[in-house]
Every structure is written in C-alpha cells, then in structure tokens.
Write a protein that binds this DNA or RNA. Structure first.
Length: 270
DNA sequence: ATGGTGGCCTAGCCA
C-alpha cells in the first residue's frame, strides 16, 4: 500500500498557486502540508485544489503572516489548531488522515518561529520565542495516539538545521540563528524525548549535505549553494520502516518566482 | 561587507 506526504514552505499560497498546482499534478502526493500561506482562511484558494482532486483540507491562516494548511486526496478528520507560547499565531494545524490499508495517521504541520537575527534571548525576544516554542513542542510525542491505532507524522519548516551537514558551512553558521548549539540540541532533544524519527536522515546519510532552503539574497543560489535543511519530515517509529523514498525537489528553487524553500516528499510502502 | 531579495499589512515588518 503506497502513501506519500509532501511538506513545502510556499511563502504565499496565493502568489504561488500555479507552482502548487504544478507540484500536485506532477508529484501527486496523497497529502501536501504548506507553511507560510500568508492567507486568511476566507481567502484560501480551496476551489482550485478541490478541482484537481485535493478535496480534503485543514487550514489555519491569518492575514499577512505565517499560516499553515493540509491538502489531501484522502479523507481527513479530527483537525486541531494548537497555540504555542500563549500566542494566537497560525503556526500549527493537525489532522488524522485515512491512509491506505485502514492505516490512520495523525499529521502535524508546523511553522516554527524563525527567531530573528541575534541568537541571544536577553536582547532578542524572537529568539526566546523560538526556544520556548521548541520547548513546548517537546510535549508532542510520536506515540501519543498509538494506543488508539493512530501513527504520527510531523512535518514543516522547523527553522533549525540540526546536523553539521544540514548547512553549507558548520563553522560559519555556529553563531547564526538556525544552527546555534542551543537550537540544534533542543531540536534533537525533542526527537529523542518524543521518539520521533528524522526520515530525511534515515535515507540520506549524515555524511551527505542536504538542503531545503536557499536565501533569496544570493546572486546565484545554485552556484553559491549556501543552503540549509530547515524543512523536516519526522514520524513515529512504526512508520519509519515503511519509508521507501525521500525526494528533495531542489529544481523547484529554480522555478519562475520561486519560494525560497523546496518541497520534500516522503513516500511510504506499508 | 552589516549589504543583499522577496511578500504583505503600502511602507514598515518579517523572513
């Protein structure tokens, strides 16, 4: 039984609607999780997605900033929108997908705060917010619903590149927000404490560099290749064995009017 | 080198 899920920080779903449609028509994932939709719920382009077979949606948007959405060809149920750090930002949406083989999977879709420029919470409240957000995410466990027969997948733009090979230069980025030790330790601590499996890294060995984001500010993003792996696909251990392929769509960074993030797809064969 | 580019809330934030 095949099942696939894609995560993509789209940086405005309305501006890049044609790119999302192209992805859905070519990659054809069962589920697409978007971040930074930057779109209030009543302006979300639901009809366009329904028209190409993605009839089930769980959206959590707000005006101008953040925003997450789950689009699915398979039925969704029990959607939830969690609030972190007591702030009502649209940074999380979750739903249970009815996957093939009567498998039920809880999908969590996150947009973690970027954290500002200065990696010091005493002078930069955004960095403190990011650390607190990750700390609160520790409460989310991969096996929390397994007793009810529900497996878990956590995806999204976590804005942290944990491994040395998740950035173009480990040394040069140690003091750059997204790759500081306090962030990377907190993120890997969350994986261990919550028993999440980093699916990208089960298929791409830690010796190999892998990036999902390249800054808009580079003159030539491909030539410089100064990327970071900010986007993640994690799962509960019971699903990890079923992973058949991980696809990081690097070419999407070269599309017309691209997002600065590329889609990552996990293919399962249960 | 303290820039650079891009999106939305028109112009200052945020990434």
């Amino acid at each position: 039984m095949a099942f696939s899920v894609t995560t993509w920080n789209i940086n405005s779903v309305r501006l890049r609607l044609p790119l999302v449609q192209h992805l859905l028509e070519t990659v054809q994932p069962d589920v697409l999780c978007l971040q930074e939709t930057k779109c209030p719920n009543d302006a979300f382009p639901s009809a366009a997605f329904r028209k190409i077979g993605y009839e089930h949606m769980a959206i959590h948007g707000q005006k101008g900033y953040h925003g997450v959405a789950i689009l699915s060809r398979l039925p969704l149920s029990d959607d939830q929108r969690l609030s972190y750090c007591g702030i009502a930002d649209a940074r999380h949406v979750s739903a249970v997908v009815e996957a093939p083989g009567e498998r039920r999977i809880r999908l969590h879709n996150f947009y973690v705060p970027a954290g500002g420029d200065e990696p010091n919470r005493d002078i930069n409240p955004k960095f403190g917010h990011k650390l607190d957000f990750i700390e609160e995410m520790r409460g989310l466990h991969a096996e929390s619903e397994l007793k009810d027969g529900i497996s878990s997948i956590l995806v999204g733009d976590l804005n942290i590149a944990p491994l040395e090979t998740d950035v173009w230069s480990h040394k040069q980025l140690l003091k750059v927000v997204s790759h500081t030790p306090v962030e990377t330790e907190n993120l890997t601590g969350m994986q261990q404490g919550g028993a999440w499996v980093d699916l990208i890294r089960t298929h791409i060995p830690p010796e190999e560099k892998v990036f999902t984001w390249w800054s808009y500010r580079a003159k030539d993003w491909a030539a410089a290749d100064r990327g970071r792996r900010l986007d993640h696909v994690w799962s509960s251990a019971d699903l990890a064995d079923g992973l058949s392929k991980i696809e990081v769509l690097r070419e999407a960074r070269g599309w017309e009017r691209p997002s600065d993030h590329v889609p990552v797809t996990a293919h399962f064969d249960f």
